[in-house]
Each structure stands twice: as structure tokens, then as C-alpha cells.
Write a protein that binds this DNA or RNA. Structure first.
Lengths: 241, 241
DNA sequence: GTGCGACCCTGACCCTGGGGCAGGGTCAAA
DNA sequence: TTTGACCCTGCCCCAGGGTCAGGGTCGCAC
């Protein structure tokens, strides 16, 4: 016969934890001795150890109670599910650890390539507003998708190196304070559509599948800055989808 | 410029989480627009992602705030510590997973060997009280130290197979309701000490170092049942330590 | 211009898995 | 008989959010 303290030390938990499990109906209240102390048997210890195993695996206490009391439950399958979640959690923790290490080593999440790229934008004649916006966006992209960011930026640099394509972006920049109904806006959207078709054909646009949410974020962030830009985006989207 | 919702989706958290981080001083409150909405920059997104990385690594929010605001802190070392804890946690989870699998496969934590052993005790003439006590103890040992339990039980079976040694345990069993001052008690303790010395010399007793807490638990559980048994244990302990 | 759905604001309460304390009773050994 | 270690119940506290209420705001469409 064990006292609660001994049982607790034995199972590696605190007394309070055992009392909580009683209160929640996880572990049956044992008999009491003459002075009201709980007296446990070795079976209780085994039960407690099973409960702790599930709890340490991250199963909520309420769920553990179900598993142990509800007879119409497929215990085998439930345990298998728990096992799978545990595996997923371990994988997640390892990913976190990798991110943590990157954070510890290179505190500058911005590779120097970005600075160069922004400098070139200025040389091309983009407005300071545009450059700032681009800086923000690349910071974001590098922070969230460090693997593909460099590649995307290289692609972008290549596009801007071609004068015809660059002009489209320069006009885009300049359209900032235009009225959304201005014919120049519509014309610019058409030119952008034509250039896109020419560059990528009717195939996949780059980054669409790879990085999933980046383009959407970039575009809507850009859009917020100007009604004319919003209009251009809507027009392009209507034609390319 | 990002709204709180966009930032949240972006970092993979809820809006509420971001507001909590503001309230706790983890993430600076950004400027508001004309209607009172928070407007974020890409830098905020980067900060948030760093915070989440630490939070997912299990660092308490209060500690994260310290790390990010207190300049007199060795960030490098702190991150290294976090990394170590993370490794430990992953190891723990894997241990839990192993226990879980054992729990899923063999639901009977009691190998059949135990039943045989208990049957033999009855044949030897041990009291039902003794058999029950032994059953509880072996359940406990198998539940907590499955690796060494079988070995320990084999050892015990071997001891009981020798009539002279078995007689000591039978007398122990019978001493249950004796007065602790009865001379038979003292004599029994002396016999037990002699037998132990004979069997193990002055070297290590088995299980003492290997299983650490098992013998203590067994002995004190046994002791609780009878004052005479307590006395015997005290006498033996005095001579062997 | 008006309606609509999606967003945002603050404040307040709810939840889990225990920790910790108060105020009091109990046990075993010296 | 005292002492130190246990045990009892009841109560409030914590982190890290989730959820709801009650109200204001966007941008787009018709």
C-alpha cells in the first residue's frame, strides 16, 4: 500500500498532479485509511504510469479520460493516431531548431544581394517610394522563404535588365497618383499582359506554385498603396487569372 | 503596409496572438491609420517570425521579451541554451513514443512468468497475504523497469528454490503478527543477514545500483504492512546498511 | 448611394494543466 | 512528547491564448 507521496515520487509527478487526475476522473479515487489518507496499490501505479505516458505524448486530459472509460472506442487506432501526432510534433520541433540556429548564426537575415538590387533600382530611375516598397517586400520574402528568395530576386533582376520590360515597371511606378480611370492605366495593364504572355507563354507563371502565398502578399501589399495600382492589378487579373 | 490579419496569416498565427504579443511588450505596437487600424511593415513581419521561432522552441514569452529588449544579455549563449533544451525535449518525446508503442502493442504489462512465479509461492506454503503483496510488487516492477524486471524475478525464483533460503522467507511471512520485541524476530533478522553475507559476500547487493529506487520502494511497501516486519528491516539495515 | 461581406477595434470572460499557500490533522521514531 | 515529514481540503494564481459581444470600417458591386 502506497501513500500519495510515494506514488508521486514513483511515477515522477507531483502530489498535486495525482489529485488533479482524481478530480478529473482520470484515475479512480482509492480507498482511504482510518485517518482519511489515500492508500494506493501497485495497480494504481501502473494506471498512473499509463496516464502519464499519454499526457506526455500531448494528449489532453479530457481525451485520456475518454480513452480509458469509453468502451466503444477503438483504442488501437487512437493510440496509433497519437503516435502519428507525436511524430509530427518531433518533426516540427526539429524544423524549429533549424530556424533557431539560422537565427543564432546569421543575425542579418538580409543577404548583401538585396542592397545591390535596390541600388540598381535607383540607378534605373525608380522613385524612392518604389525602392522602399521593394526593400520591404524582399525583407519579407527572405525572412519567410529563404530557400527560394535568392532565385526569385535573380529572376527579377534579369527582367529589369531588359529595357522594354523595365519600362513597364517604371510606368507602373509613375502611375501611382493617376486616377484609376485614366486611359494610361488601362494601356499599361495591357502592355503588362502582353509582356507576360510573351515571356511565359500560356504556361505556368513562376512562383505561382512554388511559393504559393508570396505573390499574393506582394501584390496586395502593393495594391494598398494606390488606387491606380489596384486598378491595374484588377485589369491584369481579369485577363490572366 | 500590412493589416493585422494579413500579418497573422503570413506568420501563421492568429490575430489574437499578435495582440497578446503587443500587450506583453514583445512586439512594438505599430502606427495606426486614420481609422485606428494597426499598419505593419515588413520589418514587423520579420520580428514576429523571430518571436514565433523562439516561442515554438518553448521559450516563455516573458523570457523572449527579455532576450529582445535587455541589451546586457548574451544572446549567443541564450540561444545555445534554448537549442540544448530543444534537443532534450526531442529526446524525451522519442522516449515517450517508445513507451506509447509498448502500451499499444502488449496491453498486458504482466508477462506470464509472473503468474507462474506466484503459483509456486502458494505451493511453497506462503500465505495468501504474502502472495498478494508479491503480486502487487511485481506488477509495479514490471511497469516501471521492464528491462530488468524479468532478471530480478528470475533471481528471486532461484533463491526460493533453495530450501534453506526459502525457509527464511517463510518465517518472514509468518512473523507478520508477532510482537516486534519477540526474540524470534531478532533471530530471524540475524539469519537473514548471515544468508545474505553468504550469498553475496561483502560485495554489492544485486539491484542496489542497477535499479536504484526499486528495493527501497519494495521494502517500505512491505514494512507498512506489519510492525514486526518493520523491525526486521531495521535490524537488517543496521548490520548491512 | 446603399448594401454586403470581410476586416478591424476594445474589453471581458473561458480554458487547460497544474503550482502554491493556508490552516489543520497524522505518522513514526527518538 | 516532541519533532519532522506527510497528508487533507479549499482556494487563488499563472501562461498562452480562444471566443464572444458590441461596434466601427473597408472596398467592391449594383
Amino acid at each position: 500500500m502506497l501513500t500519495i507521496g510515494r506514488l508521486a515520487r514513483y511515477a515522477g509527478v507531483t502530489i498535486k498532479t495525482i489529485r488533479v487526475y482524481h478530480a478529473k476522473g482520470l484515475l479512480a479515487e482509492p480507498d482511504r485509511d482510518a485517518s482519511g489518507y489515500r492508500r494506493y496499490t501497485a495497480r494504481d501505479a501502473v494506471e498512473l504510469i499509463k496516464i502519464r505516458t499519454l499526457a506526455e505524448a500531448g494528449v489532453p486530459l479530457a481525451r485520456i479520460r475518454e480513452l480509458r472509460t469509453d468502451p466503444g472506442i477503438d483504442l488501437r487506432k487512437a493510440l496509433h493516431d497519437v503516435d502519428g501526432e507525436l511524430t509530427a510534433r518531433i518533426r516540427e520541433l526539429r524544423r524549429t531548431q533549424r530556424r533557431l540556429r539560422r537565427l543564432a548564426e546569421g543575425d542579418d537575415l538580409l543577404p548583401e544581394g538585396v542592397g545591390d538590387h535596390l541600388g540598381r533600382l535607383r540607378e534605373y530611375g525608380f522613385s524612392e517610394r518604389w525602392v522602399t516598397l521593394q526593400a520591404d517586400l524582399w525583407v519579407l520574402v527572405f525572412a519567410t522563404h529563404p530557400e527560394t528568395a535568392a532565385e526569385l530576386m535573380g529572376d527579377q533582376a534579369q527582367i529589369l535588365a531588359e529595357p522594354a520590360l523595365r519600362q513597364i515597371f517604371l510606368d507602373y511606378d509613375r502611375a501611382y497618383d493617376l486616377d484609376p480611370g485614366d486611359p494610361f492605366v488601362r494601356e499599361l495593364a495591357d502592355r503588362a499582359v502582353r509582356a507576360t504572355r510573351e515571356r511565359y507563354g500560356s504556361g505556368e507563371l513562376p512562383g505561382q506554385d512554388i511559393t504559393s502565398d508570396i505573390p499574393g502578399l506582394i501584390q496586395s501589399t502593393v495594391n494598398e498603396a494606390s488606387p491606380a495600382w489596384r486598378r491595374i492589378d484588377a485589369l491584369i487579373r481579369r485577363q490572366i487569372g
